[in-house]
């Protein structure tokens, strides 16, 4: 997974509250077999409006999305995180996120930044004309206008994001412990270790 240290650039001033996963990626995109290309389905319904933010030249390739309260509520579909990633989003700033969405975002290397509503409002204002800067190392969001908003993040998640560690990679690093368990289990619960080869 790509390491996230700084996210810098134009931020899409979306701002909507209670954006559910159906809005982020409609259900008919769930029958895909790859994560790639889901960006085309991201915010599909909103993008039917020709003046939508996501397709405007101004915000093309923006790495940051600014949203309202409870972003990513609804179903647990991981496609929501994949769609944002495919759209080029590396960080989402909002006053709150659904737990499942922020978990899925993290697993896919997207940084979720929680800031109070007034600071989010200020960033929405700035984003209309200027870039926003997120410094994960120092846990702070800044703007060219001397705004400086500090944020909290779980230390484990921060460590993983900064170093581009994914959960699978971290567990693979525990290979010795897993192999030890397997050896012991082979002795004590031998039938469980056999699986489909017993046929």
């Amino acid at each position: 997974m790509e390491a996230v240290r700084q996210v810098d650039g134009r931020a899409i001033p979306f701002g909507a509250k209670n954006v559910d996963t159906d809005v982020i990626i409609p259900a008919h995109w769930l029958k895909t077999i790859t994560r790639e290309g889901l960006g085309r389905g991201a915010f599909e319904t909103l993008r039917k409006d020709p003046d939508n933010l996501f397709d405007s030249a101004e915000y093309a390739g923006s790495p940051i999305l600014i949203a309202g309260d409870n972003f990513g509520c609804g179903s647990s579909r991981e496609h929501a995180a994949w769609a944002l990633l495919d759209l080029g989003i590396k960080a989402v700033i909002a006053p709150s996120f659904s737990d499942i969405f922020s978990g899925n975002a993290f697993k896919n290397g997207i940084l979720t930044v929680v800031l109070p509503q007034d600071q989010v409002d200020r960033l929405l204002e700035v984003a209309k004309t200027d870039p926003v800067h997120i410094d994960l190392e120092n846990q702070v969001v800044t703007t060219p206008f001397q705004d400086r908003f500090e944020f909290e993040i779980d230390p484990f998640r921060k460590h993983c994001l900064l170093n581009g560690l994914d959960e699978v990679g971290l567990t693979l690093a525990r290979d010795t412990a897993i192999s030890t368990y397997e050896q012991e289990a082979r002795a004590t619960l031998p039938w469980l270790a056999k699986g489909v080869e017993t046929a």
């Binding site: 647990s76 991981e78 899925n104 697993k107 896919n108 959960e167 699978v168 567990t171 693979l172 525990r174 897993i178 397997e182």
Partner: peptide, 16 residues
């Protein structure tokens, strides 16, 4: 489990 966890189990045979 979800798809990320499916990947995790396939690769490591474990879950956190």
């Amino acid at each position: 489990i979800g798809t990320s966890e499916v990947e995790h189990v396939l690769a490591t045979q474990t879950l956190l």
